[in-house]
Design a protein around this nucleic acid. Structure first.
Lengths: 146, 146
DNA sequence: AGAAGTTGATATTTATAAATATCAACAATT
DNA sequence: AATTGTTGATATTTATAAATATCAACTTCT
């Protein structure tokens, strides 16, 4: 699934990421707690961020600070990504999937037990990785229509 | 397009609507200014609201006050409604349509010049009327996939 | 082994979105 | 003709989301 090894490489500590983005460590962790981002973690449980992660965080930041979309609004927009088309869910998968039924949380914030997602790591799933910006969500909806 | 004549009949003045909803007149007009609702207007330019309008406003109110989605977030969610499928736009319509290209405003807030929407009144269009709640937007995206 | 950085959890601050208020001009109702 | 309600535009208030700060326990690095 990964596109560009260097871009995707988790290399920055949380403090370095915060420094590069000119925000506080706490803010980054808040976005994670809210389910907007999924950081890579070392065996010791410490977070690591890639350049792609930094871009995603900046996009979230612009949505909040410039476009005035609240965090809960961003969550709802992410929840509209047609993940079932991207991962090719069967009708049975759909019927068991809380993410498919809901419209408040991004699919990657659910446990996804007993669906085909249960063994996938969301961080490298196209649903999370490729369609993270608001404009891209609409492009995706366009592409699946008909 | 109208479903239930009584439900759709614009009968309440803005002050009556505000009273029935336990909110201020100003709040209703703010939602209109933001492009979330389209009231019926008398020849004298005064607004009139139907029961359907009241339900729509209550839904917006729940999104803001309970779900903590900001007004700009609601606008972006509305902008994701696949209107081009509902009104059956041609490729040419799409290429001329600002609403199709954008992702920040509901389609009914655009002028829609020189598209097939230009002569439609958005207030009675299915895009505006039927898919006004957040959960319904996701249902609609589901229905157009494949 | 000690310094610097990280973790999660909770509390506090601040920036601002949402709601309300005010106004003079105009419309509707009795 | 007078009262009540509406309009649009602007200003003010208030409720709270987003960001920051604090803490003690735990990692990492030299």
């Amino acid at each position: 699934m990964l596109q560009n090894p260097e871009f995707e490489q988790p290399v920055y500590s949380i403090s370095m990421a915060a420094h590069l983005l000119s925000i506080s460590v706490h803010t980054i962790r808040m976005y994670e707690r809210e389910g907007l981002i999924i950081p890579h973690k070392k065996e010791s449980n410490q977070r690591l961020y890639s350049k792609a992660d930094l871009e995603r965080i900046q996009c979230i930041r612009r949505s909040i600070n410039e476009s005035k979309v609240s965090i809960n609004g961003i969550k709802r927009i992410y929840s509209l990504i047609p993940c079932w088309e991207i991962v090719k869910c069967s009708d049975e998968d759909k019927s068991k999937c809380e993410a498919y039924k809901g419209h408040e949380q991004p699919c990657w914030t659910y446990q996804n037990k007993s669906t085909k997602c249960e063994d996938l790591k969301c961080r490298s799933c196209d649903v999370y990785y490729k369609y993270s910006q608001c404009s891209e969500v609409k492009d995706l909806i366009k592409s699946i229509s008909r």
